[in-house]
């Protein structure tokens, strides 16, 4: 019975993980939530963030016996959620899920974001986006260099991004190579994919949603927006290699209001990390399939990561102004 093997493997892995966990935390009493934990998901039900958050929540309930209540607080790609989360009690019973840009570029780009990075305690990241520049295979382009070459001949391509940040990057590309795009900002990766599929735009940005189409040979990653090349498209150069010195990838992140108890932060972060890093969980399989696989950052390292994001966003904005 394959199910039985699966279950035994899972138990074994969970046992090992639990044992390891017990060793590392044996010195202190483990933090236990006093009541149900509410998770505010900054995106709509059914999307990638929502799916991840709910799968993680279900697994945490199973492993830790915590009661977890997910709900969706949508608006402005997570900004509305952040604004609401900030005001909730910092006892570890209210956490939110969003992407790191909500506490970096998006926060700084908005004239009235209504919160600052220090309003939050950052709990754990789960996975990273597979940010790439994508086009239909039928266009005949192999890498972004082909697009630039065609654009230099005076062709103006329709280029879809998902945020003002992408428009900024496009502007930098235009400046560097002396080309012109008609940049359009669409709401969400799904819309960009639709527009590319239907031919409404020539190329666009995808944060991982394009993976299936790329593997199926329908679309091609022309460039990577990450610091490194994309896992599935090693031939596509990074934007940095193309002379645009910015990594525009983002990570998915759990946050809490500022000042939650240190043991709560650690317990939550460890628990989330344990679920995501265990390859037998649905949550882990999901982030491996749709995104860059488990990418858990917690504690001081996470604080440093967020600070660095803010520094990068500020430089990008300074360059643009």
């Amino acid at each position: 019975m394959s199910n039985l093997t699966k279950i035994t493997t899972r138990l074994a892995v969970a046992g090992i993980a639990a044992a390891a966990f017990a060793v590392t935390t044996s010195a202190q009493a483990e933090w236990k939530p006093k009541g149900p934990i509410s998770v505010m998901i900054g995106f709509a039900a059914g999307g990638g963030t929502d799916t991840q958050a709910r799968l993680i929540a279900a697994e945490l309930e199973k492993r830790r016996g915590w009661k977890i209540i997910p709900s969706n607080v949508t608006g402005k790609g997570g900004v509305v959620m952040a604004r609401k989360l900030k005001k909730l009690p910092n006892d570890g019973l209210s956490i939110g899920m969003a992407v790191t840009e909500v506490f970096g570029y998006n926060m700084l780009a908005s004239k009235k974001a209504g919160y600052k990075a220090s309003d939050f305690t950052y709990v754990a990241t789960t996975t990273s986006s597979q940010m790439g520049i994508v086009a239909n295979t039928s266009k005949g382009w192999k890498t972004f260099a082909d697009v630039i070459a065609a654009a230099k001949k005076g062709k103006v391509f329709k280029f879809a991004g998902m945020s003002a940040k992408h428009a900024d990057i496009n502007f930098l590309i235009e400046q560097k190579y002396g080309v012109k795009f008609n940049t359009v900002v669409l709401r969400g990766g799904r819309k960009v994919m639709n527009a590319i599929t239907a031919g409404d735009v020539d190329l666009g940005y995808g944060a991982g949603i394009q993976t299936k189409a790329v593997l199926a040979g329908k679309m091609v990653n022309l460039a990577s927006g990450l610091g490194e090349r994309l896992r599935i498209s090693p031939n596509a150069p990074t934007l940095m290699e193309m002379g645009i010195p910015y990594a525009i990838g983002a990570k998915f992140i759990f946050v809490a209001p500022a000042g939650i108890p240190a043991d709560a932060r650690k317990a939550l972060g460890d628990a989330i990390g344990e679920v995501i890093n265990d390859k037998t969980t649905k949550a882990s399989q999901f982030v491996s399939k749709a995104y860059g696989g488990p990418d858990v950052v917690t504690g001081a390292k996470l604080d440093a990561y967020i600070n660095n994001e803010i520094v990068i966003a500020k430089t990008l904005m300074k360059v643009m102004n």
């Binding site: 329709k158 359009v184 669409l186 709401r187």
Partner: peptide, 12 residues
């Protein structure tokens, strides 16, 4: 609104 914004943007 989205269709208008996009149409405006892609037509330059």
């Amino acid at each position: 609104e989205e269709a208008m914004r996009q149409a405006f943007a892609v037509t330059g």
